[in-house]
Structures are given as C-alpha cells and as structure tokens.
Simulated assay, not measured.
Amino acid sequence: MARLMQLSLRGARGLTGRPTSSRRLVTRCGTSGKFWIGGNWKSNGTAESVSKLVDELNSGTVPSNTEVIVSPTFLQIPYVSQNLDQTKFAVSAQNCWVEGYGAYTGEISAEALADAGLNWVILGHSERRALNEESNELVADKTKKALDTGLSVIACIGETLEQRESGEMFNVLDAQLAAIADKVSDWSKIVVAYEPVWAIGTGVVATPDQAQEVHAYLRKWFADKVSADVSKSIRVVYGGSVNAENCAELATKEDVDGFLVGGASLKGPDFLVIANAFETQAVSA
C-alpha cells in the first residue's frame, strides 16, 4: 500500500493545465458557496459513545463558510437529531431504498427519511457497492428517488486499486457518473464524494496532488458532459483516510471542496479540526 503514495496521474500541471499546487481561492463559488464536510459513522457507536461524541461536537465551533453533516446508523438517528446542535450540524442517513413505502424488508425508504426530518442521504458508497452488489444503475435510481423525495444526496464514486493500476480508473469514474447523469437533470442538491476504494479505512490517503488531479478531471467531466454551470457549482469532496493531520493541506487544493470522513468522524476533537480545515487554510492564505 505504501507505494500508492507515489502514484501520479497526468503530470505536474494536471488535467486542466493549472498547476496542481495552486491554493484555492478563499471565496467559494457555487450553490451555497460553502466548503462541505461529512462524517460517515458507518456501523459504529453505542448509546454511550454516541452521547459522548454528540457532546464533544456540540462543544466545538464550525466556521460560517463550512457546511457539516454527520451520518449515524439508522438506530442512532433519532437521538442524534434530537441532541446534536443543528445550528452547526445537519444529520444524514447512510442509505435508502429505490422504492417508497412497501414490502421491502430491511430497507428504509426515502419517504421515511424525509418524514423523520432528514435532509441528506449517502448513496453509492463503495462498501455498499461491494457488499450488496449495487450497480451503477441502482445507485442512479436511488439518487433520482431521493432527489424526487426532496432529499439532498452524497453520491459516492471511486476506483479500486486494480482499476487504478490497470488504467481503467477514469473509465470507472465516467461510468459511475454517467449512470447518475442519465437519470438526473438537476445537480443542485448533489455533493459528489470521490473515494478511492484503496484509501478507505486503510490509513493510506491520496496525496494532495493526486486528489487534485482526479477532482480536476471530474470538474472537467461535468463541464463536458453536463454543463459549465454545474461544473462551476457542484461540490466534489474527497474521502479516504482523511484525518486531523492531513486535512489542512488537502483543503488547499483548488478543486477539493471538502471531505467525506470515516474513522476520524468518530473522534469529536479530530472531526472538529477537519470541520475547520478550510477556515484554517483560508486564514493562513
């Protein structure tokens, strides 16, 4: 895994011709103009640990230029929604089903999430794609269903190590986005999370320049395949072993609009550092 840190994609100037080391502008463009941070708690947390985590988050501060979302398990959503300071944080679900209410044992409908007062849902995470064999088309159908129900979507895409090293990475990302584009016309309530599968939960993180390369590619994909306006406004965030130590440097990259965080989101002080990453680098710019 260590050799992944040395992988390069398309050269020092990147896919857009811009230097990959350029610092992002302090002023954000786009829908809300805010940097975006998500915490995916996955299947973690007890009543005791979640109560402690909520208290830690409530005691911290979130800058006005950053939108922060946390995503507990379905069982924990009611407690978190009732006790987390939602002037600072929003609450998301980790999945929803492609159909509405009905005889779908074990599934949660988008309508049920909206009825519970949620505004966000994570869809297409690589762990669900792998464990549940969710196809690009199913993820796209879920995305359309969630949007039609009024939810905002964190749409996850990413390649495996084998796909990256075989040269198929961009084809994989293209196919994942194209499936959604075939079903969706309004991207204003979608955040795209680029999560290289080889970096999720491994402790290996893409270098800032590697992350910028792929995000610049995705920005260009939206310009070419959807529209210039969507390319300028959509937030493309990075996920893959983001932590309190590497977040500030990643946040400097021009096309990295935030993070979807896994393990570090379970540590309140660390997650607050990440939530303030853009503010930290903006002040030092």
Rank of each mutant, 00 (worst) to 15 (best):
Q6V: 01
G11A: 07
L15C: 13
P19R: 13
R24H: 12
V26P: 02
V26H: 03
C29I: 07
T31I: 10
S32W: 02
G33T: 05
G33H: 04
K34E: 07
I37L: 05
S43T: 14
E48V: 11
K52S: 12
V54P: 08
V54A: 07
L57D: 07
L57P: 12
S59G: 15
V68A: 12
I69Y: 14
F74W: 10
Q76E: 10
P78C: 01
V80E: 03
S81M: 09
D85C: 06
V91I: 13
A93Y: 11
N95L: 03
V98F: 04
E99L: 13
A103Q: 01
A112K: 07
A116Q: 06
L118E: 12
L118G: 13
W120A: 05
V121K: 01
S126D: 09
A130C: 06
L131T: 15
E137R: 13
K145D: 01
D148W: 03
D148R: 04
S152Y: 10
A155C: 09
C156K: 03
T160Y: 06
R164H: 13
V172N: 06
L173S: 07
L173F: 10
L173H: 07
A178D: 10
A179S: 09
A181R: 06
D182E: 05
V184L: 02
D186E: 02
W187D: 00
Y194R: 04
W198Y: 14
G203A: 09
P208A: 04
H215A: 05
A216N: 08
A216E: 11
R219G: 05
K220W: 07
W221R: 12
K225S: 14
V226M: 08
S227T: 00
A228F: 00
S233I: 00
A244I: 00
A244D: 11
E245P: 00
C247M: 03
A248D: 07
E249A: 07
L250E: 03
E254Y: 00
G258K: 00
V261S: 03
L266M: 15
F271N: 07
F271C: 09
N276G: 14
S284L: 15
